[in-house]
């Protein structure tokens, strides 16, 4: 997550000029805050929170900064809060027959929370494929996370693909 603080002139259309480079470079905007009460010299502090593809974040952010500079939009501050706590995994096997609720609960007991679940089946007797979006604690590294996942998968004979 990126938090960008700028000062925009209090004129119609200036917000669009701020948003254009962000969305053009793949930014997914989560929120915009205007601080009208802090207006000085016709400039309003504006705070935009957005997300960029992590793999190309640095390049995209540089492009956004350059484009804002070209538009004479003054950047006050940039906070990078890289969201590393959420990852996607895929389980293949008898995910439901081996009690998917038990899997989810056991993960939750280790503070690994399932945020989203999507599944694809062919037939009931066949293996299913389940995509989980999971959130894990900040103080847990990926190796520790994978160890927890592997423990359950080995026991339930599930094939694990992590990101």
């Amino acid at each position: 997550m990126i938090n960008l603080e700028v000062k925009l002139p209090d004129t119609p259309g200036s917000l669009i000029e701020l948003i254009k480079p962000i969305s053009k470079n793949g930014g997914n905007i989560y929120g915009i805050l205007h601080f009208h009460d802090r207006k000085i010299n016709n400039l309003i502090p504006v705070n935009v929170t957005f997300e960029l593809n992590e793999e190309i974040q640095e390049v995209s952010m540089q492009k956004i900064k350059n484009e804002l500079k070209e538009k004479n939009i003054q950047i006050e501050n940039i906070d990078y809060e890289i969201e590393k706590k959420i990852i996607t995994i895929i389980l293949t096997g008898h995910v439901f027959d081996t009690d998917v609720m038990d899997t989810i609960k056991r993960l939750a007991s280790k503070n690994i929370n399932v945020l989203e679940l999507q599944a694809k089946f062919t037939e009931l007797e066949e293996v299913s494929n389940v995509k989980l979006k999971i959130e894990f604690p900040e103080d847990m590294n990926k190796k520790e996370l994978n160890n927890e996942l592997r423990k359950i998968c080995e026991e339930k004979k599930l094939f694990l693909i992590t990101s």
Binding site: T88, T92, Q118, K120, T122, N129, V130, K131, K133, I161
Partner: peptide, 18 residues
């Protein structure tokens, strides 16, 4: 050998490849 077409399809939904 255990990678399935369905797993690949699910991965694609989130912009991933296996």
């Amino acid at each position: 050998s255990k990678v399935t077409p369905h797993a690949i399809e699910l991965a694609k939904l989130d912009g991933y490849v296996i």
